[in-house]
Amino acid sequence: MFTGRKLLIATKHAKESVIQPLFEKEFNVTCHTNTTFDTDILGTFSGEIERRFSIMETLRKKCLLAAQEEKFDLIVASEGSFGTHPTLFFAAADDEFMLFLDLKNNIEISSREISLETNFSGEEVNTSNQLLAFAEKALFPSHALILKSSEKNPEIIYKGIVQKEDLLNKFQELKSKFSSVFIETDMRAHLNPTRMQVIQKATEKLVAKIKKACPSCNFPGFDVEEIIKGLPCDNCGLPTKSTLALKYSCKNCDFKQEQKFPNNKKFEEPTFCDYCNP
């Protein structure tokens, strides 16, 4: 279905470095990156352009707009979000989404990778010592930094700073004009190796999903539709909140299949039982 076709990777931040090798190897496609479409029009991490849509809506718009402008019918893109982890509320997380569209065959397949591996941070600094302490914590200079005249609606913003001398000079320049300076991590993928590694993991997940074909019609993207809880406790036998089965569904023929014990265990430890360990 994909062999010999051209695949557009919608990015302006070098994400093709991790996406292209996997897709070309697994699907025998020829990858290209967009030359005219600016993905930043849908939002920037540094705040100059606000992301107005949900992350999946943004991803879909990125794919469709880039495909239309670049004249492709096979396209892949990623979109990240940074903030508090959805379950570990005191930890920062990188939440990466991937979307693959085959407009010719009406296929849409997505993946998601949530990782605690991120340097995402920002704070107000008033001295060069504070500045350099933040820089060290943020893995500078292998990871770029951003300086702003203020956290919200800054008059001046310097992005992609990767040299200590440049960081200090721009800080002094801003400090001479404003009462304080806001420093934050530059989360653009080509300037943040940690984020690029998470994008690679999300890409690996996406490739695996695409390769999983429906047992009935062989359509790609045979994916989990429902997670069924209720793995029995090894002590009392009552159902726990752990996964008992996964229900797969085909988007093409609506064939469904249930896989029991996906984590290769038939009972859960009493530690995770609400009855044995309330």
Rank of each mutant, 00 (worst) to 15 (best):
D223P: 04
V224Y: 04
L139P: 00
F219W: 00
A14M: 12
L8W: 01
A144D: 10
S121G: 13
K201N: 00
N235S: 15
S54L: 09
F272W: 13
K159Q: 12
S176L: 08
T118E: 08
R195F: 03
L246H: 09
S176P: 01
G221V: 00
E96M: 03
K229P: 00
L7H: 04
A133S: 15
L99A: 04
G83M: 09
K159T: 14
H85A: 05
H32S: 08
R52P: 01
F23Y: 13
I157K: 14
K212F: 07
I41L: 14
L167K: 12
E226G: 05
S149N: 12
I199N: 03
E268N: 08
V76K: 01
I19Y: 09
N277S: 15
I228K: 01
K247C: 02
A135P: 13
F97R: 14
Q68S: 12
N169A: 15
D254M: 12
F89N: 09
C236R: 15
T58C: 08
E16N: 15
P220C: 00
E155K: 02
T58D: 05
Q259I: 07
N252Q: 10
I41P: 08
T35Y: 10
L103Q: 01
V125K: 13
Q257F: 12
C250K: 13
C250Y: 11
K71C: 01
I41F: 11
Q259A: 05
E124S: 07
T185S: 15
I107P: 02
A14S: 14
Q163L: 14
F272P: 03
F23R: 12
